[in-house]
Simulated assay, not measured.
Amino acid sequence: MTHYVNPLHPSVHAENTSNYSTLGSANPISSLSASAFMIPNRRRLPQTPYTPSGKWKSTSGRMQPLRNAVAFDLNGYEKQGFSMQELCVRGEYALEQMMQGATDRVLAHAPHLRKITVHIRWPGYEHTEWARPIEVVTSRGPISRAALAQAIAINFARFCEKAQMERPQSPHWRIGHGGITFEKLVLISLWNPFEDAWQADVAVDF
């Protein structure tokens, strides 16, 4: 039986008490194994880090993350992620009750940063290029953790709509009917592999 976590009223056990930090590790994809997930059928999506191609890549030499990762968690469940479907259907007030640090202005420490580009590098769909901007300074000030998570989830929803119409180069992480659907996606964090390029650390509930 699949372990279910109630997103609005999770039961917090002592061993799950969070030692939460606003910023996670720089590269969560390499720092957290699949065995760290409480839900046994949850698996991390293997993505290759974005690097610029051509002459710019060879001359710049800047391949390390410039900013720390931004984590997205249910209250009381550190490093377990947040359902992308919940992010798309819940309103602002509900997310503030559900998400750890939902109102934190997570990129406010970089005042010059006005926009980031989210890259999706889904295995088997590398030919389906996806790079979309997200405004991280709004009319209300720097974007909140919850609003950033929603923007990322919307990008993945649209990517899944596009990808399911295409033929993957590998069947293992196929998107669409009989494969992986958007409802199975869990947003773990957002990390910065290069300059203004950011990637979501994502898990799949099989």
Rank of each mutant, 00 (worst) to 15 (best):
Y77W: 13
R44M: 10
V89M: 07
Y50I: 09
P65R: 09
F159C: 05
E161L: 05
A71D: 01
H127K: 10
W130P: 01
A110K: 02
P49G: 09
W130Q: 10
A157N: 05
C160H: 07
F156K: 07
I154H: 15
V89H: 07
M84F: 14
D73T: 07
L87V: 08
P65N: 10
E129F: 13
R158Q: 05
A69P: 02
Q80C: 05
D104Q: 11
L148M: 06
W122K: 05
G101T: 07
I152G: 08
S83Q: 14
V106E: 02
R114W: 07
I154D: 09
G54A: 10
F159V: 04
S53L: 14
A94F: 09
E78V: 05
A102Y: 05
L45Y: 02
S60K: 02
Y125G: 04
E129R: 15
D104C: 11
P52L: 12
E126T: 11
G124Q: 01
R132E: 06
K79F: 01
A151W: 00
I154C: 01
A69N: 07
Y77K: 09
P133H: 07
S58V: 01
A94E: 11
H112I: 01
W130A: 08
E135I: 06
K55G: 00
E86C: 13
N75L: 14
A108M: 01
E129S: 10
N75P: 00
E126D: 12
Q97P: 02
E92L: 13
A151F: 00
E96T: 09
A149Q: 03
R132M: 06
H109I: 04
E96K: 15
P142I: 06
A102S: 13
T51S: 07
G54R: 04
S58G: 00
T103I: 10
P52E: 03
R44H: 03
P123K: 05
C88F: 04
S60N: 06
G141F: 13
P111S: 14
I143V: 15
G81W: 05
Q47W: 04
N155E: 13
G54M: 12
V137F: 15
R90F: 10
R105I: 01
K55W: 09
I154M: 15
L66Y: 07
H119W: 09
A147E: 03
V137E: 08
V137H: 12
A94D: 09
C160V: 07
Q97V: 09
T59V: 11
L95W: 02
A94N: 08
M98R: 11
E96N: 15
H109G: 04
F82L: 13
G61V: 12
L148T: 06
E96P: 02
E92M: 09
L74G: 02
M98Y: 08
I116P: 00
V136Y: 04
E78R: 08
S139N: 11
S144L: 06
G61I: 11
R62P: 00
P111T: 15
N41Y: 11
T128G: 10
A110P: 00
R67E: 01
A153Q: 10
W56E: 00
M63A: 14
A94L: 15
A149C: 06
V70A: 03
R42E: 01
L87T: 03
R43G: 02
Q47F: 07
W122I: 04
D104H: 14
G91I: 03
R44T: 06
Q150S: 10
V136M: 07
S60A: 01
